[in-house]
Nucleic acid binder design. Structure first.
Lengths: 298, 298
DNA sequence: GACCTCGATGAGTCGAGCTCATCAAGGTCC
DNA sequence: GGACCTTGATGAGCTCGACTCATCGAGGTC
């Protein structure tokens, strides 16, 4: 079998065309260098170098083999380097799940931040609902997921990646649209587009507890799953809705967004979840990145 | 430094995910296999395999390194194979010079024969006059050349690659064009387009000796170097010419070619020439091919 | 709890590759 | 033409790395 040491010896001798100088460059003495070349020639079953005591020249086989040897050596070096980078979490691919809503604003910012902070890291992104992400993390289909809390599965760990305000989405012609901001009390008995209790349980439960806490009860006309569907009904004038601030980025014409004053100003959270015993090296730097994104430098 | 044995060990373990089976496939026992993997991990400064006494799994670094290791192993094998082929004269590139006239018919046949008999051999062809070819062979610019004899240089060797008849090239309206064939005697005092004594000395000298031997003397109007230039003058009706039979392949309209009866039926020769101490492995198979082309199987 | 599987590890041995010394070929120089 | 120099090949001796064999220990199964 071939041997990297032999390839390196051959490449250097082929460059220097002089065993003594080549041996010096290789930090060895001349006799073992001669023997390495001999072994390589025996392995390849052909002469690579024509040598007399006066000159060293490449044979046709040697000329053909030299670039291959150099290529293999380069590849080996690169592979070793890249592998070290991957192990250190400075390079590689991280398969990341995300929910539809996080794509509105958070995900693009994350991708840009990742590209800046870790240019050799690729995020392989897949949109999945929270439940599928949990299964995907457990099965290894994705390395981590951006999901709605709480993360209860005992094999998973999670931490907050984002907290954002809720805003009121109003038809442009709605009476409340003239206000600068909206309070929960304004929504009492208003026609309201809400979230489906099962498919969008996070926002459903969030709103239920907000309304209960404020002692109000909007008139819930429809309960939908996807934020853009809710906004479509709002635009049609059926009612108003509460959505995460990122939804403003959808730029729905005919809808105005107004800040919603709440005791907890940023109640809508996205968490990063991963397998507790995950050995994916990129997890740590990703978590650092997410933490940095929440506390941007002044 | 990396080691091919380690790469092979890692690749097989990564496939089997079992040290015992991998060791069997590698024709070794399990302890040294474990140690090879440990050494590789130390060289790469990271874990490639997560192993307990119950299971073996790839880490992220291992998943990243595996395809690289496989690629390097494949490359090494291919490089060794190709180099052996080159050394044996079954593959590689042969830089071959040729004269303009040999391109008419002989060279295409040679290229096709070469592609059939030695599919892994590439002919790198360059058109050069005989004198430049001799210099090119001596300087190593070309490995061999198809030139006009005689080859006199003491460092060169040569052998006949082709012998072909001469034919008479006549303007279509020429009186001799009605004949089936032409004899040298017919050319006496005829207007004739000949070859330049220096730039086309081979054909010049050949015709001089033919005419002298036949005791005739055509009226030489012009002496040119290139056969296609000579034929252009023939077509213009200035005179007739004697050209190698391959020139018929030029398909000059307005010219008819007629066999020329001679004592030596194939006086126009092309020889293959090469450096005496050339170590180009492809020379031998090329010479065999050229010999086979001259004595085609029945 | 006894047993089994499987990777890690320790002890002993053998061989590959290193160093040093030397040879042989083929130039150079006086 | 002979002494000398350069340079790659080769031989002897030694060292260190890698293999074999035996065994351990973790973690399952029955």
């Amino acid at each position: 079998m071939l041997d990297f040491a032999q390839l390196r010896c051959f490449a250097v001798v082929a460059e220097e065309l002089h065993f003594g100088r080549a041996a010096a460059r290789l930090n060895m003495t001349q006799p073992p260098l001669s023997r390495q070349i001999q072994v390589l020639e025996r392995v390849l079953d052909c002469q690579l170098l024509d040598r007399t005591s006066r000159s060293v020249r490449l044979t046709a086989a040697g000329r053909s083999f030299l670039p291959e040897a150099q290529r293999i050596l380069r590849l080996a070096e690169t592979a070793a380097y890249v592998t070290r980078q991957v192990a250190a979490g400075r390079a590689g691919v991280l398969k990341l799940g995300f929910t539809a809503a996080s794509a509105y604003d958070f995900l693009p910012r994350l991708v840009i931040a990742c590209r800046t902070a870790m240019p050799d890291v690729t995020l392989s992104l897949r949109e999945m609902v929270t439940k599928d992400q949990v299964e995907g993390i457990l099965s290894g289909q994705i390395d981590a997921g951006l999901i709605r809390p709480p993360v209860l599965h005992p094999e998973l760990e999670a931490e907050r990646a984002l907290a954002e305000p809720l805003v009121a989405a109003l038809p442009a012609e709605h009476p409340l649209a003239v206000r600068d901001a909206v309070a929960l009390a304004d929504l009492h008995a208003e026609p309201f587009i809400g979230y489906a209790p099962h498919e969008a349980s996070y926002f459903h439960n969030l709103l239920v507890s907000l309304f209960a806490g404020a002692g109000i009860q909007p008139r819930i006309l429809q309960q939908l799953t996807q934020i853009h569907s809710i906004l479509a009904l709002v635009r049609a004038g059926l009612g108003l809705a509460l959505v995460p601030a990122a939804a403003e980025r959808l730029r729905f014409e005919g809808i105005v967004f107004r800040p919603l004053h709440l005791a907890q100003p940023q109640p809508a959270e996205i968490h990063l979840a991963w397998r507790k015993e995950s050995d994916v090296p990129l997890l740590a730097p990703l978590r650092t990145l997410l933490r940095d994104m929440q506390t941007p430098p002044p």
